[in-house]
C-alpha cells in the first residue's frame, strides 16, 4: 500500500541533531550524526542491528546522554534542560518501545491511564475514561480494556504501546522497531496505524527499523545509518538507487522492489 503523503512543513524542524556522538566504552556507536525532522514528516532511520539506531532516539528523548553534539527538540536543547523541564518536554514526545514496555502488573486500562493521571494532576474520572476509550478506538482494540498485557498478542501489545503514548497527544512520535517480531500481515497493520497516527494526530515521527516494507509504507524520507553516520538520505527509491556495496545488499535481501 502506498502512503498518502501528509503535508510537511520543510521550514519548521521539530528535531535538530548536529554532530551527535555516543560511545559505549571504547566502541563509538554514533560518530557525528546530523539530522533534521520536519513538522508533519515521517522519517525512517534504516540500518543494520547494532548501528546505533535505537541509541539515536534514546538520546533524542533524553534517556541517554550524548558524548558530543547538540540535540534540539521542539526548540529546546536537551542537555541544557533541568529535570523538570525535561519531564515537561517528554510529555510532548511519544516513545513506542521495541518490546512495547507495557507495565506487566497493570491492566490495559491502567497502562493507558498511567501517563494521564501522572501528568494531569486532578483530572476527573470522566475525562480519563473518555481519553482511554478514544485512544483504544484509535488503535482498534477497545475490547482489550480489562485484559492484562500477558493476555495480548505481540501485535496487540505494540498497538497498546502506541495508544499509551497517544493519550498525551504528543507532537513527536519515536518508534523503535515497530514491526520487529511480527508476522507480515500484522506488520502491515502496524504500518497503517503509524500513518493513521501521523494523519490524525498531526505528529512528526522518527521510525527506527530494518524492515523495508515498513520503511516504504511509512516513510516520507529515509535515512541510512552506517558506521555511526547517515550515509544516504532521501526518498525510498533514491536511497536504494545505488551500487554502494554496503547499502545495495540491504535492499536485495528484501523482496520488495
Amino acid at each position: 500500500m502506498e502512503k498518502q503523503k501528509a503535508p510537511i512543513d520543510h521550514k519548521n524542524a521539530v528535531i535538530r541533531v548536529h554532530g551527535l556522538k555516543k560511545a559505549f566504552g571504547d566502541y563509538e556507536v554514533l560518530r557525528g550524526v546530523n539530522l533534521e525532522l520536519y513538522q508533519g514528516e515521517n522519517l525512517v532511520v534504516l540500518g543494520r542491528s547494532g548501528t546505533g539506531k535505537s541509541v539515536l532516539i534514546k538520546v533524542i528523548s533524553g534517556l541517554l546522554q550524548a558524548d558530543a553534539g547538540t540535540v534540539e527538540v521542539l526548540g529546546q536543547k536537551i542537555d541544557q534542560l533541568t529535570t523538570k523541564e525535561l519531564q515537561a518536554l517528554r510529555i510532548r514526545i511519544g516513545f513506542s518501545f521495541q518490546n512495547s514496555a507495557l507495565y506487566d502488573s497493570m491492566t490495559v486500562r491502567k497502562n493507558l491511564e498511567f501517563p494521564l493521571v501522572r501528568n494531569r494532576r486532578g483530572i476527573g474520572r470522566k475525562e480519563i475514561d473518555t481519553s482511554v476509550e478514544r485512544v483504544l478506538e484509535a488503535v482498534s482494540l477497545s475490547q482489550t480494556i480489562n485484559q492484562m498485557p500477558s493476555e495480548l498478542s505481540g501485535g496487540q501489545r505494540k498497538r497498546i504501546g502506541i495508544a499509551r503514548t497517544l493519550i498525551l497527544n504528543p507532537e513527536i512520535m519515536l518508534y523503535d522497531e515497530p514491526t520487529a517480531g511480527l508476522d507480515p500481515i500484522t506488520c502491515i497493520e502496524i504500518n497503517e496505524l503509524i500513518n493513521e497516527v501521523q494523519e490524525r494526530y498531526k505528529t512528526s515521527s522518527i521510525i527506527i527499523t530494518h524492515d523495508l516494507t515498513c520503511a516504504k509504507q511509512t516513510g516520507d524520507r529515509i535515512a541510512m545509518l552506517l558506521d555511526g553516520k547517515f550515509q544516504r538520505e532521501g526518498s525510498f527509491e533514491h536511497v536504494f538507487d545505488t551500487d554502494n556495496a554496503r547499502i545495495k545488499p540491504f535492499f536485495d535481501y528484501n523482496f520488495i522492489k
Binding site: 518501545f97 507495565y103 506487566d104 501528568n119 498525551l168
Partner: peptide, 14 residues
C-alpha cells in the same frame, strides 16, 4: 530489562 522503567521516564513520570 523490559524497558518499563524507561517507558515511565519518557512518559513524564519520575
Amino acid at each position: 530489562v523490559t524497558e518499563q522503567i524507561d517507558a515511565m521516564e519518557v512518559s513524564g513520570t519520575n
